[in-house]
Amino acid sequence: MGASGRVTLNDVAAASGVSRATVSFVLNDDPRQSISGPTRDRVRQAARELGYVPHGVARALREGASRVVVLNIDGGLEGNYSRSYVRGLDAELAAHGHVLLVRHGHQSPEAARQVLDVIAPRAVLRFGEAYVTGHDLEDRGGGWRDGLAAHAALQIRHLAAQGHTEVALALPETETPVVAARLRFAGHAARDADLSVPGHFVAPRERPACTRTVRTFLADAPGVTAIAGYNDDVALRVLAALRDLGREVPRDMAVIGFDDTEYGSLVSPSLTTVHIDAEAHGRLEARLALGMDSRGLTPAPARIVLRESA
């Protein structure tokens, strides 16, 4: 233990039988280093048993406003994009000596104020706000360059290119401003592609309820030949419902997801979806929150992951 009484990297290295550099690589999860799984487990276990606190975290707790960034994620916005975004945001903040605190779900103004009074953060971010508006990419038109509007349009344009002229949107049960934005952006994209404005329905989580909903919707909209899911989770519910209804995908109905979760490739038919470089968006947001130059952090363009369903 160091002279200050704080557990150091040297202590963790001695306890796990590896070098100080190896401990640093493991605890910082450096992707450029090839370190075996057993060694990583041994280092992490030693760190836990010794009560090791990374220097940046300890410093953030001491300095308060200069080192802590708070991210609020409203209920219903969790998903692959949010997980990747948080990973990038956290990594970029950590690279500049800051700590990320993530708060999930709806918070009352009183609870939020208590947190801010105790922590005095460097910045408070609201997840989804920058993505919807595009501000994180200096795109003021609702994210038409590499934000939600552009990605919603990518989903609709893919279906149009496959020859579909009437599409529908499958939405989650949770009502959020992002859902309203998706509907608006999909409508713009459909009109630009000379399609009818998409109809929409909410896809319940429970399979029987979702099957009933899809049956009713398609009975009222017989011209629909493709369904765009709000995210992959919703699209997978629709796939299950169509299977229950005896509809063959993509012959009878095409389905496309959004957010590229790991589950889309595991189902049959596998799910076509939209992949977004959310981690780079998180890193950009970190730079902007810290007032730093964001040059050199250009996200890869969103793309269609072409599989079997559409």
Rank of each mutant, 00 (worst) to 15 (best):
I156G: 13
D90T: 08
R251N: 09
D233Y: 07
A152E: 06
L171D: 13
G229V: 02
A310C: 05
H98E: 01
S294E: 09
T298P: 03
A15W: 10
V12S: 08
L297M: 11
V118Q: 11
D117I: 04
H275Y: 05
A95Q: 11
D277L: 04
G141Y: 03
R40E: 03
E285D: 10
S309C: 02
A13G: 07
H55W: 04
R20N: 10
D259T: 14
L50R: 12
G51A: 09
N72V: 05
R157F: 11
V70M: 06
H275V: 08
A58E: 10
S66H: 02
H98W: 01
L239F: 08
V70G: 03
L183E: 14
Y52K: 12
G264W: 01
S294Q: 09
V224H: 04
R191S: 12
A60H: 03
G56L: 01
D146T: 13
V69I: 12
F185P: 00
I119T: 06
T216A: 15
S270G: 07
Q162F: 00
H281P: 02
H188R: 12
D74K: 11
P31L: 12
A235E: 07
S108L: 09
V305C: 07
L183G: 15
A152K: 09
V197L: 04
A130F: 00
D29H: 11
T216I: 07
A310T: 03
G199R: 09
R307S: 05
V179G: 07
R67G: 00
R287M: 11
S84T: 00
R122D: 03
A161R: 11
L89R: 05
